[in-house]
């Protein structure tokens, strides 16, 4: 305690408490109260004059569009986390080995994590463009595609295109968490296994995997929560379209609030999304605890 009272501790903490309170706590409170305000208004300052009730929740739960968004969100989450995990694991196993130039190659392989969502969006829009996209050109050359396909504008491919862009940004997080866990495994375990004649697969199955399982579960939870919040990539590439094919909950909340100015239903939808996220986190925490103890 270095002989100081704990008031110093709280004094140092107070700016953070104020920031979190005013800029996260209070907004959260505002979202919850707004979710009970029924009706729509273009003047947000008059929101508190609207009648209160459970109407927004009834509207949201009864709307087919909500359940459509829930479905899109689930496909988006599973479609993103699965491939991102696979690429992350592969790259982590590779980067865990010693080879020349590893420092820089690791940085390059992790780089997509740092690329702003809007840049991810414009680059993939261009790569997958219908007329001049380089992906279409390559597919045509390989003979796998005969027509021009506007990936982000086509009902059937839009969600897949959005997922590909998201996977690209999401996999480095798996790489770096799994890599950290791999590096914590004592090298002697591998040497002992080698002496005993274990194959590469056996070494992975019985040494690497048990060593990284907890980190893998945790990274999957955090990345799922991230993907659930992801807005930039979807909004900039498709705006939730075509015909709502990519309208996840995060995008729908925004459209309700700022395209239709229905702050009440948007907030209700937001509160429900958060409850969903909390349940997801809670459920997976429990699994995680079981992993540890």
């Amino acid at each position: 305690m270095i002989g100081r009272s704990r008031w110093v501790g709280y004094a140092l903490l107070s700016p953070a408490l104020v920031a979190v309170g005013f800029l996260i706590g209070y907004p959260l409170y505002l979202v919850i109260t707004t979710s009970f305000r029924q009706g729509k208004t273009l003047d947000v300052l008059r929101l508190s004059a609207l009648p209160a009730g459970l109407g927004n929740y009834r509207t949201v739960l009864g709307s087919e569009a909500t359940w459509h968004s829930v479905g899109v969100t689930l496909v988006y989450l599973v479609g993103t986390i699965g491939p991102a995990f696979a690429i992350g694991l592969l790259t982590a196993l590779l980067l865990n080995r010693a080879f020349p130039g590893r420092r820089w190659l690791r940085s390059f392989i992790l780089l997509p994590w740092a690329v702003p969502g809007v840049i991810v969006s414009i680059v993939f829009l261009w790569l997958l463009d219908g007329s001049f996209g380089v992906v279409n050109a390559l597919l045509r050359q390989a003979g796998w595609l005969s027509t021009d396909l506007a990936w982000f504008a086509n009902d059937d491919t839009a969600l897949g295109a959005v997922i590909v862009a998201t996977v690209w940004k999401a996999y480095p997080f798996f790489t770096l968490t799994l890599l950290a866990a791999l590096q914590a495994i004592p090298a002697t375990l591998y040497e002992a296994a080698r002496v005993d004649g274990a194959t590469a697969w056996q070494r992975f199955r019985h040494i690497s995997w048990p060593g990284i399982r907890a980190a893998a579960v945790l990274a999957a939870i955090l990345n799922t929560l991230w993907a659930l919040r992801e807005f930039d990539i979807i909004y900039v590439t498709t705006g939730g379209g075509p015909d709502r094919a990519t309208e996840t909950l995060a995008v729908r909340i925004y459209q309700e609030a700022f395209a239709f100015f229905r702050m009440g239903t948007a907030s209700a939808l937001g509160v429900m999304t958060m409850v969903f996220a909390a349940l997801l986190a809670l459920a997976s925490m429990r699994t995680l605890r079981r992993e540890y103890f």
């Binding site: 209070y26 959260l28 979202v31 919040r229 807005f231 909340i253 702050m263």
Partner: peptide
């Protein structure tokens, strides 16, 4: 909590408050 708050949601109260 901050990991569960979508930016597209938190921006609603920011918009109201900042107005």
């Amino acid at each position: 909590l901050s990991k569960m708050l979508p930016a597209s949601l938190i921006v609603i109260p920011f918009f109201i408050g900042f107005s």
